[in-house]
Simulated scan of single mutants.
Amino acid sequence: MSSEYVVHGASGSGSMPVEATMRLLGLPYRVIENAPWESKAAADAVGAVNRLRQVPAVILPSGELMTESAAILIHLADSHPQAGLAPAPDARERAQFLRWMIYLPASIYSMFWVRDDPSRLAADAAAEQVISQRTAQRIADCWRMMDEQVSPGDYILGDRLSVLDLYVTVMSRWTPRRKVFHQVAPKMSAVVRRVDADPRLADFWAQRMPFEAGWEG
């Protein structure tokens, strides 16, 4: 049994909310950096841990493997209730917390398996272009529908930061990028700007998901 978490991840990827959560919780962890979409070698390295060849994959201190970013985030938050990064099981906000934590990977994150390599589903280059355009529009539509149904305070569930806010903040920086996100999800835009500016995460964003020129799209 180890005292640290081992995160198989990549800068800018779905491991970002997991790593950010570990930072906030003060957990000991190390990252094994492999971006499976960049090379066969990286995909093979991730595949040796997660047969889906996707990040994040986390080895818990117990030695157990966890995959699926939403599951990892919920587990981390529930395992450290004193930090308040998720509503308690009996809290009024818990149902909506679970709803949106599952909505994100089911409706939005899943689009990126297609977008990372449209040839997985497309018969030719023309079809790939159509898939890229339509998945970008689907992602924007899903952000719009979520925004219409939430009533944020300082954060999506109210006045306390949760792993849901970290999840949305990272994913809102992916295609179709923040300029579109701000247009279609104005209520959540204030939340992600607040998380961007959280001083506890300033070093983390700079190291792992830097605000470089043109990052908003």
Rank of each mutant, 00 (worst) to 15 (best):
D159S: 04
P61E: 09
S15R: 02
D165C: 10
L121G: 11
K40M: 11
R178Y: 07
V168G: 00
E33H: 10
I131S: 06
R193A: 15
G26D: 06
R94H: 02
L201Y: 03
W215V: 12
F211M: 12
F97T: 00
E38F: 09
L27P: 11
I102D: 11
D159I: 01
L85W: 00
E93A: 00
V130A: 12
G153K: 02
I139P: 00
Q149P: 01
D90Q: 10
E64P: 01
A190M: 10
V180T: 15
T67Y: 01
S189N: 03
K179F: 12
R200H: 14
S3N: 14
I102P: 01
V163H: 00
V58Y: 01
R200W: 09
Y109Q: 14
A41H: 05
A125Q: 13
Q207W: 08
P89G: 04
M66C: 09
L52W: 05
V195C: 05
G63E: 09
M22G: 13
H8F: 13
I74T: 12
A190D: 13
I139R: 03
T135L: 05
A122Q: 11
E64N: 13
L60V: 07
A88H: 03
S3F: 06
D203G: 15
A136S: 15
S162V: 00
E68W: 01
